[in-house]
């Protein structure tokens, strides 16, 4: 696994001041009567990889799904107070078109979920729903997205085969490519590697590292090594509260909170 666990390397680029893209302020979130998130405030910075870690049920996925309002699908889910601003727009404002938001904030899920269509159609789907019909434009985007997801060389000969025939890791990268095709600025990843074997995981991690150049990435993970490997900043959640949010180096090398320390050193979780 040659993915850099190279925290020194990251330190080498502090030149430009990081710019916050997602600003969460005093967010309280609840499923019906049970509150899931308590008073979360955090900024997520542009073109960085931010990792959310924490034990199961700590609210990290919930927060992630708040960022592109996927929680709207659950009837009883609601924001009690606080706000989330992306590019200085309150995304829970009434005049926000959730569709536009989701085009801007892409998402990759825990379980790879390609549509039961061909590989090509899976990638082209995002374009098609926006009404793009031009074949050459579609071809171009499909290729660049697949290249972007480091999948092109593996699938270029069978673009018209069903996507369900790909291996698990390929499927997950296909889902990433699919998300890239709509040209988002932010990509949310909800435990993208939890269902993959180590080799496939490595490939996806490599990909995340590569994508960082162009995209802001938020990744939820169970796996602390993974967080350490891929992220610039790490947030530790516990029981619906944000316990600590610092650069990854800080969190892993020198955690301030005792709970964080206990978690990253593997004493609970």
């Amino acid at each position: 696994m040659n993915v850099n666990f190279d925290i020194q390397g990251k330190q080498a680029e502090p030149s430009k001041p990081p710019k916050p893209v997602i600003k969460t302020k005093n967010l309280d979130f609840a499923y019906g009567d049970s509150q899931a998130l308590f008073n979360i405030s955090m900024d997520i910075f542009k073109k960085e990889v931010t990792a959310f870690i924490g034990p199961s049920g700590c609210g990290k996925s919930t927060l992630l799904r708040c960022f592109n309002r996927m929680n709207d699908l659950i009837d009883i889910a609601q924001i009690k107070s606080g706000s989330i601003r992306i590019s200085d727009i309150d995304i829970y404002n009434k005049d926000v078109d959730v569709i536009e938001l989701r085009k801007h904030v892409g998402m990759v899920f825990q379980k790879s979920n390609p549509f039961p269509k061909s590989i090509y159609e899976n990638i082209a789907y995002g374009m098609r729903i926006q009404g793009v019909k031009n074949r050459s434009e579609l071809d171009e985007t499909v290729e660049s997205s697949l290249r972007g997801a480091a999948l092109w060389d593996e699938v270029k000969d069978r673009l018209n085969k069903s996507a369900l025939g790909l291996s698990g890791g390929q499927q997950q990268r296909l889902c990433i490519a699919r998300a890239l095709a709509v040209k988002p600025k932010i990509i949310l990843m909800d435990e993208p590697c939890s269902a993959l074997d180590p080799v496939a995981t490595a490939k996806v991690e490599e990909l995340i590292h590569k994508l960082k150049k162009h995209y802001t990435i938020v990744v939820v993970t169970h796996n602390m090594q993974q967080a350490a490997r891929v992220s610039d900043r790490t947030a530790f959640f516990y029981l619906g509260r944000l316990v600590e949010y610092e650069t990854t180096e800080q969190i892993f090398m020198n955690p301030k909170n005792s709970k964080t320390e206990a978690y990253v050193s593997g004493r609970f979780g």
Partner: peptide, 11 residues
């Protein structure tokens, strides 16, 4: 999850 995937793309 298929529905989620599609919605997350902005459909």
């Amino acid at each position: 999850h298929l529905k989620e995937a599609s919605l997350a793309i902005g459909a």
